[in-house]
Design a protein around this nucleic acid. Structure first.
Lengths: 335, 335
DNA sequence: CTGTTAGCGCATTCAT
DNA sequence: ATGAATGCGCTAACAG
């Protein structure tokens, strides 16, 4: 049904080889008049190239695959924007696949799909690959890079914020504002390296300030809104924090809303620092002070890494920045 | 480098055809022992099928393409979830491509990509296709369906809420609560059919209640947070509404926050109804009353439509529901 | 049940 | 500058 280069060749009165050369712009290998004939015929026939056939013979693909974690992360949009903006001018088509973090089956499906299509590269957005799936990806010989996730032990390429610094800076900011009883909530420091690093940074900031750390200040969670709520409700029963560092924007909002339910106001009774700094911080009341990550830039760097435009180091760090908004109160002598 | 079925054939001592049969599970066309030999060899060689080659010969694809609008819509996640859940058990790989609504170039790239890959079907999430791009899609002979967008004039398949009803129900809800001065804000009734229909519903609800409609009550916008803010600031200068229907959750939050900046409180001074009803409604303070759309279900229906599991009607409507939360105040005699 | 043959649509030799 | 021939990896007849 669909027109092939053969049809064009027939119509233009040239060989298929010539059509191929014209259509793929092998400059210097065809004349102007033939080129025009070919292109006209192609247009008339409504020719569309057959990507499968092309990829089969060239063994190359212009597709860049992005595998994103299925769990609700609201920052992936920024990363994807960065990827998109960088990939477009390079003539790369970005295709996005959803995986599942827990569900290794879906993860495998996504990995297999990209591997069997031999895309030119794959970017993994905060997905923690199951060992078997990592193996599949590695053996495929396709360049890949993890984004927005720290992967210390294994020697894998990733681009991410410095999670230790995130924990450290968030905590230090609060300490500088006079706080000494500071919680850490809604992040998973048992199963995720990201969480572990942030916890370490938090502890370091505390000890640097000679603040004795209390186990009760920790409340684990999966970075979600619900985790934030649960976390906060657990707190009040135990101890009286004046501030809390939250694992994500969502978690921070959960903490804030739960605090409100408990009759606490932010920041009068409790100060909050969110981690991520997406637009969510600006639409809630009060606006959340945050440690803001450079998500967009992660996307940009990811694509450049694949394109080898940046020297390929195994890991690269994007900057973070504290955005002071309204959820932190400065403690004075009287407090 | 990568192993092919030929390599397997050699290693297993059978023909390539047999390998193909085993690997594609053409049951009844091979014996148990050969099957085992083949599969073992395949595993040992780390064989991965070459999707391009397969698609080239079978002219079939297991890929379902989803093209999403680049503009910030926060509900696409739900739709995609619905798509994903329905596609997975059907053994379809979902690949997501970003288009641009304004940028016809990117739209074309996305369309071309899916067309030239001859995916099994394409779902378009609230993207308004440029005529030229629509033409490309149509001529490709690939089934497609628009999701979350009303397309009245053209005779195209779509699955969406009844936007007239959305406008009508939102307005009627407010009227039932005693409101008579009701704004309509943050939606685009000039360029989008969705907006036009909602406006019509809004007007009808007003006239049904014998309320004289005032042009000043309308404030157009692009469904964004900023649109909501702008919209609200324009209002107060002109008229004193007691309630406003907002084009999206984001717009509603913008209206609410701007109202707060202007010294108005919600719902004491002004009531708000949001359209969409995503989780955003539940995390802001006060929680937003909304006309909630069935996004997840749109995704499910979209896939089923492509699979022909539902009778293919040209358009199908998913239900809406009013969720009363905290942003609407009932007006009493005293008001 | 299995091997042989052919061809999908295209890019790329090698001739000319 | 162009055509003829070849093969990418795979499935689908066609025999047997």
């Amino acid at each position: 049904m669909a027109a092939t280069i053969k049809d064009i060749a027939l119509k233009a009165g040239v060989s298929a080889a010539t059509v191929s050369r014209v259509l793929t712009n092998k400059e210097g290998f065809f004349g102007d008049k033939t080129a025009k004939k070919v292109r006209d015929a192609a247009k008339e026939l409504g020719y569309r190239k057959n990507t499968s056939a092309m990829e089969l013979v060239t063994k190359k693909s212009n597709d860049l695959a992005v595998i994103v974690n299925a769990t609700k992360t609201n920052f992936s949009n920024s990363i994807i924007d960065g990827i998109q903006e960088t990939a477009f001018p390079e003539n790369l088509n970005v295709i996005i696949l959803y995986a599942g973090d827990e569900d290794s089956e879906r993860q495998k499906r996504a990995i297999n799909t990209v591997v069997e299509r031999s895309v030119m590269g794959v970017l993994l957005l905060s997905v923690d690959l199951a060992p078997e799936n990592l193996e599949i990806l590695q053996s495929a010989n396709i360049p890949f890079c993890f984004l927005s996730i720290s992967l210390d032990e294994r020697n894998l390429p990733f681009i991410s914020s410095d999670d230790f610094q995130i924990g450290y800076q968030a905590t230090k900011y609060l300490i500088d504002q006079g706080h000494t009883k500071i919680g850490l909530a809604g992040l998973d420091y048992q199963h995720t390296i990201t969480g572990t690093l942030r916890l370490n940074g938090y502890k370091k900031a505390l000890s640097d300030a000679k603040i004795k750390f209390d186990e009760d200040w920790l409340s684990e969670g999966d970075y979600s809104y619900e985790a934030g709520k649960n976390t906060m409700s657990k707190y009040t029963a135990k101890t009286n924090l004046t501030a809390v560092v939250c694992g994500s924007d969502w978690a921070a909002i959960g903490v804030m809303n739960e605090a409100r339910s408990l009759g606490l106001s932010v920041p009068e009774n409790i100060s909050i620092v969110a981690i991520d700094g997406t637009e969510l911080c600006k639409i809630v009341q009060p606006q959340l002070t945050s440690v803001t990550q450079s998500f967009y830039e992660m996307g940009v760097s990811g694509v450049n890494w694949l394109l080898n435009k940046e020297t390929r180091t195994e890991q690269s760090i994007t900057p973070i920045e504290i955005h002071s908004r309204q959820s932190v109160r400065r403690l004075t002598m009287n407090d």
